[in-house]
Design a protein around this nucleic acid. Structure first.
Lengths: 187, 187
DNA sequence: GAACGATACGGAGCACTGTTCCGCTTTGTC
DNA sequence: GACAAAGCGGAACAGTGCTCCGTATCGTTC
């Protein structure tokens, strides 16, 4: 078994998580590593040791909220009027999450900087939840059956990019329209 | 009136346009300025003098194609079966343009780097075209009347971000679904 | 509680990029 | 040919990601 972590290492990891959360709301998830290090009062080496890529740090900071979103899926499915209503509600939660964090949506798509693991984490955790909601809605005859969770989630993520730079752009409206487009005609 | 441009300046501008086009297909619109300067065999100062921001350069390089897209609007409107069909066809052209240029869609949204002017140019040139197509389709009772050209174009731009990094993601499919969502029910 | 190996830390340093600035060169004109 | 204006090149500066290694701290063992 792996050796127990040193006390200062555990302490630092907590400090870093707190500091990163603070900096993320202030400067977005693209904030310079140095800024996070300074906020936490540690060196950059420390950050990189605990979180090899920026995505790892982001994932750690937001893990709780992603978890909550994932767990809301089944609950919504059992409490909503219809599977499609549940899907709508769930996606609303998902969008809430994305737009609250400056630049998170953008970071998720980023092919260049090492955000790969962030992408994978979201997919692994939320993909199956989305899948079950989609299936249920298909089963109920509410939506077409050729939409994959991956493309839907990614599309929604894309639509949420850069929400706060122009008041004329409201991603929720477009997402709502996109969901309309998923429904089958003449019920 | 302003004095005539010097011959070498004109020459350089052409050289730069050619070189930039070359580099953009090779390395995307985010390619380092130095790379473009090297390709053109000029100094970086020269680039910045001719094109103060990267967006200016991108705009200049793609101006013809944007123009073509803009001019296609009215033509499609008069030759298609319906305004909505014209809208679909036009958006297809728009998407063609975006996905052919690596990273262009992403660059257009970028709030951080100075792509503001690119954004504005697109909007100024293509917005009215999109508007006329939308209006015609509304007039014909094909789509709802509460969709603004700006949000639609921007949403489509967003959906096109990062097309080529995952074969499972096909922006055209989602865009098609989004357009479905625009249509009015039970005709 | 002293000594010592393992673990973790800090931040200087390197690589890469955008952007500016200014001495030098080329151009067009008289 | 001379001269001012226009244009050019690239060194230099600033901001960022990421690595590396000498140093400090921790936990354990005696």
């Amino acid at each position: 078994m792996p050796p127990r972590k040193r006390a200062d290492a555990v302490r630092n990891e907590q400090t870093l998580l707190t500091a990163a959360a603070e900096v993320f709301v202030r400067s977005g998830v693209d904030a310079p590593i140095r800024e996070i290090a300074a906020e936490a009062g540690v060196g950059m080496g420390t950050i990189y040791r605990h979180f090899p890529t920026r995505a790892d740090l982001v994932v750690a900071v937001y893990r709780h909220q992603v978890e909550a979103c994932a767990e809301a899926g089944p609950v919504l499915l059992s409490t909503s009027d219809s599977p499609f209503a549940a899907l709508r509600a769930w996606i609303d939660l998902f969008v809430d999450f994305l737009v609250t964090k400056h630049g998170l949506a953008g970071a998720m798509q980023s092919d260049s900087s090492g955000f790969q693991s962030l992408h994978e984490y979201f997919l692994d955790r939320l993909g199956p939840v989305c899948e079950s909601l989609l299936s249920a809605a298909v089963e109920a005859g509410e939506i077409r059956d050729d939409v994959r969770p991956f493309e839907l989630m990614r599309g929604i993520g894309n639509l949420c990019i850069g929400r706060d730079d122009d008041p004329r752009y409201d991603p929720r409206r477009l997402i709502s329209l996109l969901l309309n487009g998923l429904t089958v005609r003449r019920p």
